[in-house]
């Protein structure tokens, strides 16, 4: 069965430029919003991912982030609050050849859409979900979100929030995502690399983008991103390289077998050498180390990791679905008349 009546003679992939992915509608985010940096990186990255423009679909829910598809010159669906993964799933299962992106926010993906979020990750559908995490509700003008810090004061929590926040990469890993990464709006090149890696991954991909909302939660990430502290507060996970951080790159992560935990060490102190450090490997089948790394963001004294936590290839939901369809066709043929007639029929003359 086909889903298109198009003459699909394979045509060469056009050479795209950034502007080929701009819809011509001017984004209406507030000046200085981190979302501008994200759309800029997406439009810069797509020409290099090797997929035709008409085969890329952006799906979104509700919130500032979710206006995203309107600004992209691709097929797009701006759907309901929290429900984008559900649409994306149906689209991907029925049209596996499309590249499907979900653009979402922390409230959209983790509050009203929490159920769909964990299930799209669990199924390992080849859907790329980019979550703009500004730790606040922007479009409804400033309420706590599921990623807002404990005790945060907002319009809906004037005395401070009594709710503990989610750690989104931990949640995605727990749900079984096969690609999990984190990046920051002010790190354009890093974000571009994460987007490209997600585009190349086959399976559920989750990218958390730390995104500043200058209107309702300004400076949410300055304690990490300030030039003066950035090197000490952020650790960059780079494939195959020891996990080091700090201005001079001398601090690193070591796995302590006695405590079964990560510890921060300094190269050159107490006999520590680079050989002692954990070497980053996102392709481990077992996600335990990825969990430890993702958990660091909430641990006092530990740097916050950015980069790819996990990148594992497993059969995807849509691959297995279509394999079953093809197998069944081979085994049973698919004669509709036979199906209609069934086994127990009788004839009246």
């Amino acid at each position: 069965m086909s889903t298109t009546n198009l003459q699909t003679a394979p045509t060469a992939l056009p050479v795209y430029a950034k502007k080929d992915f701009e819809s011509g509608v001017d984004p209406r985010w507030c000046p200085g919003c981190g979302d501008y940096s994200i759309i800029n990186q997406v439009q810069k990255t797509l020409p290099a991912v090797g997929v035709k423009r008409e085969n890329i679909v952006f799906v979104s829910g509700i919130g500032c982030s979710s206006r995203f598809p309107y600004y992209m010159n691709n097929y797009g669906m701006h759907t309901l609050h929290g429900r984008a993964p559900a649409f994306a799933s149906g689209l991907k299962v029925s049209r596996p050849e499309l590249q499907v992106w979900v653009m979402t926010g922390d409230g959209d993906a983790l509050a009203i859409g929490g159920n769909h979020f964990i299930h799209v990750m669990r199924r390992n559908l080849d859907v790329k979900l980019v979550m703009f995490n500004n730790r606040i509700y922007g479009l409804t003008k400033g309420q706590v979100s599921p990623t807002s810090e404990l005790h945060k004061k907002t319009k809906s929590t004037p005395q401070g929030s009594p709710d503990y926040p989610f750690n989104p990469p931990l949640l995605a890993l727990g749900a079984g995502a096969t690609f999990v990464a984190r990046t920051i709006d002010v790190e354009g090149a890093h974000m571009g690399a994460m987007l490209k890696a997600a585009a190349g991954h086959k399976g559920s991909a989750f990218i958390e983008v730390y995104q500043n909302c200058p209107v309702f939660n300004d400076g949410a990430y300055t304690s990490l991103t300030d030039k003066a502290v950035r090197a000490d507060r952020i650790i960059r996970m780079e494939e195959g390289k020891p996990l080091v951080f700090g201005k001079d790159g001398k601090k690193g992560l070591r796995f302590d077998a006695r405590t079964m935990d990560l510890e921060i060490v300094t190269i050159g102190e107490n006999g520590v050498t680079e050989q002692d450090l954990l070497v980053h490997d996102s392709t481990r089948e077992d996600p335990t180390i990825s969990f430890m790394l993702a958990g660091m963001a909430a641990r006092p004294g530990f740097p916050t990791p950015i980069g790819v936590f996990r990148n594992v290839r497993k059969p995807t939901c849509e691959e297995m679905t279509w394999e079953m369809i093809e197998d069944t066709k081979k085994k049973r043929g698919g004669d509709l008349q036979k199906l209609l007639s069934g086994g127990d029929s009788w004839t009246i003359k």
Partner: peptide, 24 residues
């Protein structure tokens, strides 16, 4: 026929609308 057992009722219809956008 492609069937998809969704995580809830909302995702049941949501996935169907997504598929409809794709031409199913």
């Amino acid at each position: 026929v492609v069937t998809y057992q969704a995580e809830d009722e909302i995702a049941g219809i949501g996935s169907a609308i997504g598929a409809a956008f794709g031409g199913a």
